[in-house]
Design a protein around this nucleic acid. Structure first.
Lengths: 253, 253
DNA sequence: AGCGTTCGTTTAACACACCCAAACATTTAA
DNA sequence: TTAAATGTTTGGGTGTGTTAAACGAACGCT
Protein backbone atom coordinates (compact mmCIF):
# COMPACT_ATOMS: atom_id res chain seq x y z
CA UNK A 1 0.00 0.00 0.00
CA UNK A 2 1.79 3.09 -1.26
CA UNK A 3 0.37 6.58 -1.27
CA UNK A 4 1.12 10.07 -0.06
CA UNK A 5 0.79 8.75 3.45
CA UNK A 6 3.34 6.04 2.77
CA UNK A 7 6.32 7.64 1.09
CA UNK A 8 8.90 5.44 -0.56
CA UNK A 9 11.14 4.49 2.30
CA UNK A 10 14.45 4.43 0.47
CA UNK A 11 13.82 7.80 -1.13
CA UNK A 12 12.70 9.31 2.15
CA UNK A 13 15.92 8.08 3.74
CA UNK A 14 17.97 9.73 1.02
CA UNK A 15 16.11 12.99 1.55
CA UNK A 16 16.72 12.70 5.28
CA UNK A 17 20.41 12.26 4.62
CA UNK A 18 20.41 15.32 2.37
CA UNK A 19 18.71 17.22 5.15
CA UNK A 20 21.40 16.24 7.63
CA UNK A 21 24.07 17.41 5.19
CA UNK A 22 22.18 20.66 4.75
CA UNK A 23 22.31 21.35 8.45
CA UNK A 24 25.79 20.07 9.15
CA UNK A 25 27.65 21.25 6.02
CA UNK A 26 29.92 18.22 6.43
CA UNK A 27 29.29 14.82 7.96
CA UNK A 28 30.80 11.37 8.09
CA UNK A 29 28.98 8.12 7.50
CA UNK A 30 28.89 7.30 11.20
CA UNK A 31 27.60 10.75 12.14
CA UNK A 32 24.66 10.40 9.79
CA UNK A 33 24.01 6.81 10.81
CA UNK A 34 23.83 7.87 14.47
CA UNK A 35 21.69 10.90 13.69
CA UNK A 36 19.11 8.95 11.69
CA UNK A 37 19.41 5.71 13.64
CA UNK A 38 20.30 3.62 10.61
CA UNK A 39 23.14 1.26 9.90
CA UNK A 40 26.41 2.49 8.44
CA UNK A 41 26.01 0.24 5.44
CA UNK A 42 22.69 1.81 4.54
CA UNK A 43 24.05 5.33 4.74
CA UNK A 44 27.01 4.30 2.67
CA UNK A 45 24.83 2.99 -0.16
CA UNK A 46 22.69 6.11 -0.19
CA UNK A 47 25.68 8.41 -0.24
CA UNK A 48 27.27 6.39 -3.04
CA UNK A 49 24.13 6.74 -5.12
CA UNK A 50 23.97 10.47 -4.47
CA UNK A 51 27.64 10.92 -5.24
CA UNK A 52 27.36 9.12 -8.56
CA UNK A 53 24.74 11.65 -9.55
CA UNK A 54 26.74 14.67 -8.43
CA UNK A 55 24.49 15.57 -5.52
CA UNK A 56 27.12 14.81 -2.94
CA UNK A 57 30.89 15.20 -2.81
CA UNK A 58 33.30 13.60 -0.48
CA UNK A 59 36.75 14.73 0.56
CA UNK A 60 38.33 11.97 2.51
CA UNK A 61 35.75 10.75 4.97
CA UNK A 62 33.62 13.84 4.92
CA UNK A 63 30.54 14.10 2.78
CA UNK A 64 28.89 17.37 1.78
CA UNK A 65 26.20 18.65 -0.56
CA UNK A 66 27.29 18.78 -4.19
CA UNK A 67 27.03 21.72 -6.54
CA UNK A 68 24.61 19.86 -8.77
CA UNK A 69 21.93 21.43 -6.61
CA UNK A 70 22.84 24.82 -8.04
CA UNK A 71 21.70 23.60 -11.41
CA UNK A 72 18.39 22.36 -10.05
CA UNK A 73 17.94 25.61 -8.16
CA UNK A 74 18.43 27.56 -11.35
CA UNK A 75 15.79 25.56 -13.15
CA UNK A 76 13.40 25.75 -10.23
CA UNK A 77 13.79 29.51 -10.15
CA UNK A 78 13.27 29.98 -13.85
CA UNK A 79 9.99 28.16 -13.55
CA UNK A 80 8.74 31.45 -12.11
CA UNK A 81 8.04 33.38 -15.29
CA UNK A 82 8.45 36.86 -13.89
CA UNK A 83 11.83 36.17 -12.33
CA UNK A 84 13.90 38.07 -14.89
CA UNK A 85 11.65 41.10 -15.03
CA UNK A 86 11.40 41.30 -11.27
CA UNK A 87 15.12 40.97 -10.71
CA UNK A 88 15.84 44.25 -12.50
CA UNK A 89 13.17 46.12 -10.56
CA UNK A 90 14.27 44.76 -7.21
CA UNK A 91 17.80 45.91 -8.02
CA UNK A 92 16.38 49.33 -8.79
CA UNK A 93 14.38 49.37 -5.54
CA UNK A 94 17.49 48.59 -3.53
CA UNK A 95 19.52 51.27 -5.30
CA UNK A 96 16.85 53.95 -4.92
CA UNK A 97 16.08 53.27 -1.28
CA UNK A 98 19.51 52.20 -0.10
CA UNK A 99 17.79 49.41 1.84
CA UNK A 100 17.50 45.68 1.24
CA UNK A 101 14.93 44.70 -1.37
CA UNK A 102 13.33 41.27 -1.65
CA UNK A 103 11.25 39.25 -4.07
CA UNK A 104 9.25 36.46 -2.50
CA UNK A 105 6.74 33.88 -3.70
CA UNK A 106 4.49 31.47 -1.90
CA UNK A 107 5.04 27.72 -1.96
CA UNK A 108 3.52 25.06 0.26
CA UNK A 109 2.03 27.77 2.46
CA UNK A 110 5.34 29.44 3.15
CA UNK A 111 7.17 32.43 1.72
CA UNK A 112 10.32 31.64 -0.24
CA UNK A 113 12.82 34.39 -0.99
CA UNK A 114 13.66 34.22 -4.70
CA UNK A 115 15.88 37.24 -5.05
CA UNK A 116 17.46 39.83 -2.82
CA UNK A 117 19.32 43.03 -3.63
CA UNK A 118 21.29 45.10 -1.17
CA UNK A 119 21.22 48.90 -1.28
CA UNK A 120 24.03 51.00 0.02
CA UNK A 121 22.89 51.02 3.65
CA UNK A 122 21.23 47.59 3.60
CA UNK A 123 20.88 45.78 6.91
CA UNK A 124 22.76 42.52 7.20
CA UNK A 125 20.43 39.62 7.84
CA UNK A 126 20.73 35.88 7.71
CA UNK A 127 18.15 35.97 4.95
CA UNK A 128 19.27 34.26 1.76
CA UNK A 129 17.81 33.23 -1.57
CA UNK A 130 15.79 30.12 -0.80
CA UNK A 131 15.04 31.12 2.78
CA UNK A 132 11.57 30.10 3.92
CA UNK A 133 9.43 32.15 6.24
CA UNK A 134 6.01 31.90 7.79
CA UNK A 135 3.63 34.16 5.87
CA UNK A 136 1.93 35.59 8.95
CA UNK A 137 4.84 37.60 10.28
CA UNK A 138 6.46 39.29 7.26
CA UNK A 139 5.47 42.13 4.96
CA UNK A 140 5.69 40.05 1.78
CA UNK A 141 3.93 37.19 3.52
CA UNK A 142 0.96 39.31 4.52
CA UNK A 143 0.86 40.89 1.08
CA UNK A 144 0.68 37.41 -0.45
CA UNK A 145 -1.96 36.20 2.01
CA UNK A 146 -4.08 39.29 1.51
CA UNK A 147 -4.31 38.95 -2.23
CA UNK A 148 -4.49 35.20 -2.77
CA UNK A 149 -7.81 33.41 -3.31
CA UNK A 150 -9.81 33.38 -0.09
CA UNK A 151 -10.07 29.62 -0.10
CA UNK A 152 -6.32 29.13 -0.23
CA UNK A 153 -5.79 31.85 2.38
CA UNK A 154 -8.06 30.16 4.88
CA UNK A 155 -6.44 26.83 4.15
CA UNK A 156 -3.02 28.26 4.96
CA UNK A 157 -4.15 30.15 8.06
CA UNK A 158 -5.82 26.98 9.27
CA UNK A 159 -2.60 25.00 9.00
CA UNK A 160 -0.34 27.72 10.40
CA UNK A 161 1.13 27.27 13.84
CA UNK A 162 1.44 30.80 15.13
CA UNK A 163 4.59 31.42 17.06
CA UNK A 164 5.40 34.47 19.17
CA UNK A 165 8.73 35.32 17.58
CA UNK A 166 8.88 38.90 18.87
CA UNK A 167 6.49 40.83 21.14
CA UNK A 168 4.85 42.28 18.01
CA UNK A 169 4.23 39.00 16.18
CA UNK A 170 0.58 38.37 15.41
CA UNK A 171 -0.51 35.11 16.99
CA UNK A 172 -4.27 35.43 16.66
CA UNK A 173 -5.81 34.27 13.37
CA UNK A 174 -8.63 36.79 13.61
CA UNK A 175 -6.28 39.68 14.22
CA UNK A 176 -4.37 38.54 11.15
CA UNK A 177 -7.56 38.43 9.08
CA UNK A 178 -8.35 42.02 10.10
CA UNK A 179 -4.89 43.21 9.10
CA UNK A 180 -5.18 41.42 5.78
CA UNK A 181 -8.43 43.27 5.06
CA UNK A 182 -6.68 46.57 5.71
CA UNK A 183 -3.82 45.51 3.45
CA UNK A 184 -6.27 44.72 0.68
CA UNK A 185 -7.61 48.27 0.92
CA UNK A 186 -4.24 49.95 1.23
CA UNK A 187 -2.39 47.74 -1.24
CA UNK A 188 0.64 47.88 1.04
CA UNK A 189 1.65 45.51 3.85
CA UNK A 190 3.86 46.29 6.83
CA UNK A 191 6.01 44.27 9.15
CA UNK A 192 6.43 46.21 12.38
CA UNK A 193 9.25 44.33 14.08
CA UNK A 194 7.21 41.14 13.94
CA UNK A 195 10.05 38.95 12.70
CA UNK A 196 13.13 40.57 14.18
CA UNK A 197 13.25 43.30 16.81
CA UNK A 198 14.29 46.58 15.24
CA UNK A 199 13.50 45.49 11.70
CA UNK A 200 10.65 46.99 9.71
CA UNK A 201 9.39 45.91 6.27
CA UNK A 202 7.12 47.35 3.58
CA UNK A 203 5.72 45.09 0.86
CA UNK A 204 3.23 44.84 -1.96
CA UNK A 205 1.86 42.05 -4.14
CA UNK A 206 2.51 41.51 -7.85
CA UNK A 207 -0.65 40.67 -9.80
CA UNK A 208 -1.80 40.68 -13.38
CA UNK A 209 -5.02 42.18 -14.74
CA UNK A 210 -7.00 39.08 -13.83
CA UNK A 211 -5.91 39.47 -10.24
CA UNK A 212 -3.69 36.38 -10.40
CA UNK A 213 -1.03 36.58 -7.72
CA UNK A 214 2.57 36.08 -8.83
CA UNK A 215 4.58 37.06 -5.76
CA UNK A 216 5.48 40.10 -3.68
CA UNK A 217 8.31 42.56 -3.25
CA UNK A 218 9.44 44.36 -0.14
CA UNK A 219 11.96 46.72 1.37
CA UNK A 220 13.33 46.03 4.83
CA UNK A 221 15.43 48.21 7.07
CA UNK A 222 16.09 49.32 10.65
CA UNK A 223 13.20 50.91 12.52
CA UNK A 224 15.25 54.09 12.93
CA UNK A 225 15.15 54.73 9.18
CA UNK A 226 11.67 53.29 8.63
CA UNK A 227 9.29 55.78 10.22
CA UNK A 228 6.98 58.71 9.56
CA UNK A 229 6.33 59.63 5.95
CA UNK A 230 9.27 57.66 4.64
CA UNK A 231 7.43 54.57 5.80
CA UNK A 232 3.94 55.70 4.86
CA UNK A 233 4.68 57.62 1.65
CA UNK A 234 8.15 57.50 0.18
CA UNK A 235 8.91 53.78 0.31
CA UNK A 236 5.37 52.66 -0.62
CA UNK A 237 5.65 55.00 -3.59
CA UNK A 238 8.89 53.36 -4.72
CA UNK A 239 7.40 49.92 -4.33
CA UNK A 240 4.21 50.82 -6.18
CA UNK A 241 6.25 52.11 -9.09
CA UNK A 242 8.35 48.93 -9.21
CA UNK A 243 5.35 46.64 -8.95
CA UNK A 244 3.65 48.61 -11.68
CA UNK A 245 6.49 48.13 -14.10
CA UNK A 246 6.58 44.41 -13.36
CA UNK A 247 2.83 44.05 -13.76
CA UNK A 248 2.91 45.84 -17.12
CA UNK A 249 5.58 43.42 -18.27
CA UNK A 250 3.58 40.36 -17.20
CA UNK A 251 1.12 40.94 -20.02
CA UNK A 252 3.87 40.59 -22.61
CA UNK A 253 4.85 37.09 -21.51
CA UNK B 1 25.41 -6.97 -3.36
CA UNK B 2 25.20 -3.21 -3.03
CA UNK B 3 28.00 -0.83 -3.83
CA UNK B 4 28.84 2.16 -5.95
CA UNK B 5 28.32 -0.02 -8.98
CA UNK B 6 24.83 -0.93 -7.81
CA UNK B 7 23.11 2.26 -6.78
CA UNK B 8 19.89 2.05 -4.81
CA UNK B 9 17.29 1.54 -7.48
CA UNK B 10 14.45 3.47 -5.91
CA UNK B 11 16.68 6.46 -5.19
CA UNK B 12 18.14 6.37 -8.68
CA UNK B 13 14.63 6.42 -10.10
CA UNK B 14 13.74 9.47 -8.05
CA UNK B 15 16.88 11.22 -9.26
CA UNK B 16 15.97 10.31 -12.83
CA UNK B 17 12.55 11.84 -12.31
CA UNK B 18 14.13 15.01 -10.94
CA UNK B 19 16.33 15.10 -14.00
CA UNK B 20 13.34 14.88 -16.32
CA UNK B 21 11.70 17.76 -14.45
CA UNK B 22 14.91 19.73 -14.74
CA UNK B 23 14.87 19.41 -18.50
CA UNK B 24 11.16 19.78 -19.06
CA UNK B 25 10.28 22.45 -16.49
CA UNK B 26 6.85 20.83 -16.23
CA UNK B 27 5.68 17.29 -16.78
CA UNK B 28 2.73 15.04 -16.09
CA UNK B 29 2.83 11.60 -14.55
CA UNK B 30 2.28 9.89 -17.89
CA UNK B 31 4.98 11.95 -19.62
CA UNK B 32 7.56 10.91 -17.07
CA UNK B 33 6.38 7.30 -17.07
CA UNK B 34 6.80 7.16 -20.86
CA UNK B 35 10.15 8.93 -20.76
CA UNK B 36 11.65 6.60 -18.17
CA UNK B 37 9.72 3.51 -19.20
CA UNK B 38 8.18 2.93 -15.78
CA UNK B 39 4.61 2.44 -14.68
CA UNK B 40 2.42 5.41 -13.83
CA UNK B 41 1.89 4.12 -10.33
CA UNK B 42 5.60 4.11 -9.66
CA UNK B 43 6.07 7.67 -10.86
CA UNK B 44 3.14 8.76 -8.79
CA UNK B 45 4.63 7.37 -5.59
CA UNK B 46 7.99 8.97 -6.22
CA UNK B 47 6.45 12.34 -6.99
CA UNK B 48 4.29 12.14 -3.87
CA UNK B 49 7.36 11.48 -1.75
CA UNK B 50 9.20 14.38 -3.33
CA UNK B 51 6.24 16.70 -2.94
CA UNK B 52 5.86 15.90 0.75
CA UNK B 53 9.41 17.08 1.21
CA UNK B 54 8.99 20.26 -0.78
CA UNK B 55 11.20 19.21 -3.67
CA UNK B 56 8.35 19.13 -6.12
CA UNK B 57 5.22 21.19 -6.59
CA UNK B 58 2.16 20.35 -8.57
CA UNK B 59 -0.41 22.65 -10.07
CA UNK B 60 -3.23 20.55 -11.33
CA UNK B 61 -1.71 17.65 -13.21
CA UNK B 62 1.62 19.28 -13.86
CA UNK B 63 4.61 18.62 -11.66
CA UNK B 64 7.67 20.87 -11.46
CA UNK B 65 10.80 21.29 -9.38
CA UNK B 66 10.15 22.88 -5.98
CA UNK B 67 11.91 25.85 -4.48
CA UNK B 68 13.33 23.73 -1.69
CA UNK B 69 16.28 23.23 -4.00
CA UNK B 70 17.17 26.90 -3.56
CA UNK B 71 17.83 26.22 0.07
CA UNK B 72 20.07 23.27 -0.70
CA UNK B 73 21.88 25.31 -3.34
CA UNK B 74 22.58 28.01 -0.79
CA UNK B 75 24.08 25.56 1.64
CA UNK B 76 26.08 23.83 -1.08
CA UNK B 77 27.49 27.18 -2.16
CA UNK B 78 28.42 28.29 1.32
CA UNK B 79 30.42 25.12 1.73
CA UNK B 80 32.99 26.92 -0.45
CA UNK B 81 34.74 29.03 2.19
CA UNK B 82 35.96 31.78 -0.11
CA UNK B 83 32.55 32.39 -1.66
CA UNK B 84 31.82 35.63 0.18
CA UNK B 85 35.22 37.15 -0.34
CA UNK B 86 35.29 36.21 -3.99
CA UNK B 87 31.84 37.55 -4.70
CA UNK B 88 32.88 41.11 -3.88
CA UNK B 89 35.99 40.91 -6.06
CA UNK B 90 34.13 39.41 -9.00
CA UNK B 91 31.65 42.26 -8.75
CA UNK B 92 34.57 44.68 -8.83
CA UNK B 93 36.11 42.92 -11.82
CA UNK B 94 32.89 43.21 -13.76
CA UNK B 95 32.50 46.88 -12.90
CA UNK B 96 36.10 47.78 -13.78
CA UNK B 97 36.19 45.88 -17.06
CA UNK B 98 32.60 46.30 -18.14
CA UNK B 99 32.63 42.64 -19.17
CA UNK B 100 31.15 39.54 -17.60
CA UNK B 101 33.14 38.17 -14.67
CA UNK B 102 32.92 34.61 -13.39
CA UNK B 103 33.94 32.54 -10.38
CA UNK B 104 34.27 28.85 -11.05
CA UNK B 105 35.33 25.80 -9.04
CA UNK B 106 36.04 22.23 -10.00
CA UNK B 107 33.78 19.37 -9.01
CA UNK B 108 33.71 15.83 -10.33
CA UNK B 109 36.15 16.82 -13.07
CA UNK B 110 33.98 19.62 -14.38
CA UNK B 111 33.90 23.37 -13.91
CA UNK B 112 30.90 24.71 -12.03
CA UNK B 113 30.05 28.40 -12.19
CA UNK B 114 29.49 29.61 -8.63
CA UNK B 115 29.01 33.31 -9.23
CA UNK B 116 28.69 35.64 -12.15
CA UNK B 117 28.64 39.43 -12.32
CA UNK B 118 27.72 41.47 -15.35
CA UNK B 119 29.60 44.64 -16.24
CA UNK B 120 28.04 47.43 -18.21
CA UNK B 121 28.80 45.95 -21.64
CA UNK B 122 28.64 42.30 -20.60
CA UNK B 123 27.84 39.74 -23.28
CA UNK B 124 24.64 37.82 -22.82
CA UNK B 125 25.26 34.11 -22.55
CA UNK B 126 23.20 31.12 -21.47
CA UNK B 127 25.70 30.67 -18.66
CA UNK B 128 24.13 30.61 -15.22
CA UNK B 129 25.15 29.94 -11.65
CA UNK B 130 25.38 26.16 -11.45
CA UNK B 131 26.28 25.72 -15.12
CA UNK B 132 28.77 22.91 -15.70
CA UNK B 133 31.48 23.04 -18.33
CA UNK B 134 34.25 20.78 -19.54
CA UNK B 135 37.54 22.05 -18.12
CA UNK B 136 39.50 21.64 -21.36
CA UNK B 137 37.82 24.38 -23.35
CA UNK B 138 37.39 27.34 -21.00
CA UNK B 139 39.77 29.87 -19.47
CA UNK B 140 38.81 29.05 -15.89
CA UNK B 141 38.89 25.36 -16.68
CA UNK B 142 42.43 25.46 -18.00
CA UNK B 143 43.50 27.66 -15.10
CA UNK B 144 42.13 25.02 -12.71
CA UNK B 145 43.68 22.13 -14.58
CA UNK B 146 47.04 23.85 -14.79
CA UNK B 147 47.34 24.42 -11.06
CA UNK B 148 45.75 21.34 -9.55
CA UNK B 149 47.87 18.40 -8.33
CA UNK B 150 49.35 16.60 -11.31
CA UNK B 151 47.82 13.31 -10.30
CA UNK B 152 44.32 14.70 -10.30
CA UNK B 153 44.96 16.55 -13.54
CA UNK B 154 45.96 13.40 -15.37
CA UNK B 155 43.02 11.57 -13.89
CA UNK B 156 40.63 14.17 -15.27
CA UNK B 157 42.32 14.41 -18.68
CA UNK B 158 42.18 10.65 -18.90
CA UNK B 159 38.44 10.59 -18.32
CA UNK B 160 37.65 13.57 -20.52
CA UNK B 161 35.90 13.00 -23.81
CA UNK B 162 37.23 15.78 -26.01
CA UNK B 163 34.61 17.29 -28.24
CA UNK B 164 35.20 19.69 -31.11
CA UNK B 165 32.80 22.40 -30.01
CA UNK B 166 34.28 25.14 -32.21
CA UNK B 167 37.14 25.05 -34.76
CA UNK B 168 39.47 26.30 -32.01
CA UNK B 169 38.59 23.72 -29.37
CA UNK B 170 41.56 21.65 -28.22
CA UNK B 171 40.84 17.98 -28.80
CA UNK B 172 44.32 16.54 -28.33
CA UNK B 173 45.34 15.72 -24.75
CA UNK B 174 49.01 16.42 -25.46
CA UNK B 175 48.29 19.81 -26.98
CA UNK B 176 46.28 20.56 -23.85
CA UNK B 177 49.17 19.50 -21.60
CA UNK B 178 51.50 21.87 -23.49
CA UNK B 179 49.11 24.77 -23.06
CA UNK B 180 48.73 24.00 -19.37
CA UNK B 181 52.52 24.19 -18.95
CA UNK B 182 52.50 27.64 -20.57
CA UNK B 183 49.64 28.69 -18.30
CA UNK B 184 51.60 27.58 -15.24
CA UNK B 185 54.47 29.88 -16.32
CA UNK B 186 52.28 32.80 -17.28
CA UNK B 187 49.77 32.48 -14.44
CA UNK B 188 47.00 33.42 -16.87
CA UNK B 189 44.80 31.17 -19.03
CA UNK B 190 43.03 32.11 -22.23
CA UNK B 191 40.01 30.82 -24.08
CA UNK B 192 40.35 31.81 -27.73
CA UNK B 193 36.86 31.13 -29.07
CA UNK B 194 37.15 27.53 -27.96
CA UNK B 195 33.72 27.34 -26.36
CA UNK B 196 31.67 29.78 -28.41
CA UNK B 197 32.67 31.44 -31.67
CA UNK B 198 33.42 35.11 -31.09
CA UNK B 199 33.84 34.72 -27.34
CA UNK B 200 37.20 35.16 -25.62
CA UNK B 201 38.04 34.55 -21.96
CA UNK B 202 40.90 35.39 -19.59
CA UNK B 203 41.25 33.54 -16.32
CA UNK B 204 43.51 32.89 -13.36
CA UNK B 205 43.52 30.47 -10.44
CA UNK B 206 42.96 31.29 -6.77
CA UNK B 207 45.47 29.59 -4.46
CA UNK B 208 46.74 29.99 -0.93
CA UNK B 209 50.36 30.09 0.21
CA UNK B 210 50.58 26.31 0.27
CA UNK B 211 49.56 26.21 -3.36
CA UNK B 212 46.17 24.71 -2.56
CA UNK B 213 43.73 25.44 -5.37
CA UNK B 214 40.42 27.03 -4.41
CA UNK B 215 38.91 27.99 -7.75
CA UNK B 216 39.41 30.42 -10.61
CA UNK B 217 38.05 33.71 -11.85
CA UNK B 218 37.71 34.95 -15.41
CA UNK B 219 36.51 37.74 -17.64
CA UNK B 220 34.74 36.90 -20.85
CA UNK B 221 33.77 39.15 -23.74
CA UNK B 222 33.47 39.48 -27.51
CA UNK B 223 36.63 38.95 -29.54
CA UNK B 224 36.30 42.49 -30.89
CA UNK B 225 36.97 43.94 -27.45
CA UNK B 226 39.38 41.24 -26.32
CA UNK B 227 42.53 41.78 -28.36
CA UNK B 228 46.01 43.33 -28.33
CA UNK B 229 47.28 44.72 -25.06
CA UNK B 230 43.85 44.81 -23.47
CA UNK B 231 43.90 41.04 -23.65
CA UNK B 232 47.57 40.58 -22.80
CA UNK B 233 48.07 43.37 -20.28
CA UNK B 234 45.06 45.30 -19.05
CA UNK B 235 42.63 42.50 -18.26
CA UNK B 236 45.26 40.12 -16.82
CA UNK B 237 46.33 42.99 -14.59
CA UNK B 238 42.79 43.46 -13.31
CA UNK B 239 42.44 39.75 -12.68
CA UNK B 240 45.80 39.48 -10.92
CA UNK B 241 44.81 42.28 -8.58
CA UNK B 242 41.46 40.65 -7.78
CA UNK B 243 43.00 37.23 -7.24
CA UNK B 244 45.62 38.78 -5.01
CA UNK B 245 43.04 40.36 -2.74
CA UNK B 246 41.15 37.09 -2.49
CA UNK B 247 44.31 35.13 -1.75
CA UNK B 248 45.31 37.52 1.01
CA UNK B 249 41.90 37.07 2.58
CA UNK B 250 42.13 33.29 2.48
CA UNK B 251 44.75 33.32 5.21
CA UNK B 252 42.38 35.02 7.60
CA UNK B 253 39.78 32.27 7.39
C1' DA C 1 57.35 0.52 15.59
C1' DG C 2 53.39 -2.06 17.08
C1' DC C 3 49.15 -2.02 19.17
C1' DG C 4 44.31 -0.55 19.67
C1' DT C 5 40.83 2.26 18.23
C1' DT C 6 37.86 4.24 14.86
C1' DC C 7 36.53 4.86 10.83
C1' DG C 8 34.58 3.41 5.76
C1' DT C 9 33.60 -0.38 2.95
C1' DT C 10 32.16 -4.99 1.58
C1' DT C 11 29.52 -9.24 2.07
C1' DA C 12 25.60 -12.49 2.29
C1' DA C 13 20.99 -13.49 3.66
C1' DC C 14 16.50 -12.44 5.02
C1' DA C 15 12.41 -9.58 5.52
C1' DC C 16 9.73 -6.58 3.29
C1' DA C 17 9.32 -2.54 0.38
C1' DC C 18 9.03 -1.35 -4.32
C1' DC C 19 7.20 -2.11 -8.67
C1' DC C 20 3.70 -3.62 -11.74
C1' DA C 21 -0.72 -4.57 -13.77
C1' DA C 22 -5.22 -3.79 -13.35
C1' DA C 23 -9.24 -1.68 -11.33
C1' DC C 24 -11.06 2.71 -9.85
C1' DA C 25 -11.82 7.66 -9.84
C1' DT C 26 -11.53 11.83 -12.04
C1' DT C 27 -11.06 14.95 -15.52
C1' DT C 28 -11.17 16.33 -20.47
C1' DA C 29 -12.99 15.91 -25.17
C1' DA C 30 -16.35 15.02 -28.35
C1' DT D 1 -23.96 11.49 -22.56
C1' DT D 2 -20.48 8.90 -24.00
C1' DA D 3 -15.77 8.04 -24.70
C1' DA D 4 -11.02 8.62 -24.10
C1' DA D 5 -7.23 9.81 -21.39
C1' DT D 6 -5.51 10.92 -17.23
C1' DG D 7 -4.25 10.54 -12.00
C1' DT D 8 -4.82 7.59 -8.12
C1' DT D 9 -5.38 3.46 -5.41
C1' DT D 10 -5.02 -1.51 -4.56
C1' DG D 11 -2.88 -6.03 -3.44
C1' DG D 12 0.33 -9.51 -4.47
C1' DG D 13 4.94 -11.42 -5.97
C1' DT D 14 9.69 -10.57 -6.60
C1' DG D 15 13.63 -8.42 -6.49
C1' DT D 16 15.82 -5.08 -3.47
C1' DG D 17 17.24 -2.40 0.52
C1' DT D 18 18.57 -3.17 5.07
C1' DT D 19 21.19 -5.09 8.56
C1' DA D 20 24.77 -7.21 11.30
C1' DA D 21 29.07 -8.79 11.09
C1' DA D 22 33.50 -9.24 9.01
C1' DC D 23 37.07 -6.83 6.59
C1' DG D 24 40.45 -3.23 5.57
C1' DA D 25 42.50 1.14 6.05
C1' DA D 26 43.97 5.09 8.57
C1' DC D 27 44.96 7.16 12.47
C1' DG D 28 46.77 8.31 17.31
C1' DC D 29 48.79 6.55 21.28
C1' DT D 30 52.26 4.71 24.55
Amino acid sequence: MNSAKHPIQAVQRTLDIVDVLREQREARVTDIADELDLSKGTIHCHLATLEQNGYVVKNGQRYALGLQFLDLAHHAKNRVDIYDITQAEVDALAAESGEMALFTVEEHGEGVCLYKAEGEDAVQTELYVGYRNGLYHTAVGKALLAFMPEERREEIIEETEFEQITPNTITDPDELREQLAEIRERGIAYNHEETIQGLVGVGAPIRDQDGTLYGAVSLIGPVSRMEDERLTEELPQLIRRAVNIIEVNITSL
